[in-house]
Amino acid sequence: MTTPALELAGVLKRYADLTALAGVDLRVQPGEVHALVGLNGAGKSTLMRVLLGMTRPSAGVARVRGTAVPAMRPEGWRGVGHLVESPLAYPELSVADNLRIAGLLAGLDRPAARAAAARVAEELALTPWWRRRARTLSLGNRQRLGLGGALLADPDVLVLDEPTNGLDPAGVVLVRRAVLARAAQGASVLVSSHHLDEVARIATRISLINGGRIIGSLDPGGTDIERRFFEQVYADVEAAR
């Protein structure tokens, strides 16, 4: 059996009086674009934080390429790109410097980081702002910068939390192209989004999360995806009452 690129098994996460994840099982297979959709506060970001070792689960285990996250050596994260919460954008540094730093953090040497930074800036249409400081960028361009940082080192695993946040339609198309290009090269992608239409365009699988639980899935090729999303969510809310 193929080892999942990303896996959560029985993951529970509690914050004081809040259960953010209530026993989540999820697998992202190699080469798959797995979308996670849910309302605000459903647990999408917490799930991604657990996968990236940003927060420890109260129970259960998260694995990356078959290795439990707490056992991951720093080198094990090579090839994992992510954009969760805020982008890597130091306000006093230029787009060029921020991207170079992202490349170095991803394990590239200096020349490779420089080359990758230029390539990604071109891909995400950041070249006009190459020398601009991050503090002067619009929200959308900051988001592109963060996405660029995630894509720099040709990742084979990508974790993107709401990557189209703050983007204009042109930016959304750029993100779509970038994600699909990585997936075509064999990368495994876990992406969360509120944009159901957008998700349907890029995902090979869509999981629904509500109240910290995976409550079902949606067919990316199906019709009226928004209506089916709300049907399942409301059914879950009703069942929980």
């Binding site: 720093p74 969760v84 919460e85």
Partner: peptide, 17 residues
């Protein structure tokens, strides 16, 4: 304060480094 800490996780250059 700048919100960059989350981007420092899950990297070959560890938080300890």
């Amino acid at each position: 304060a700048d919100g960059t800490v989350s981007a420092l996780f899950a990297r070959p250059v560890s938080l300890r480094a």
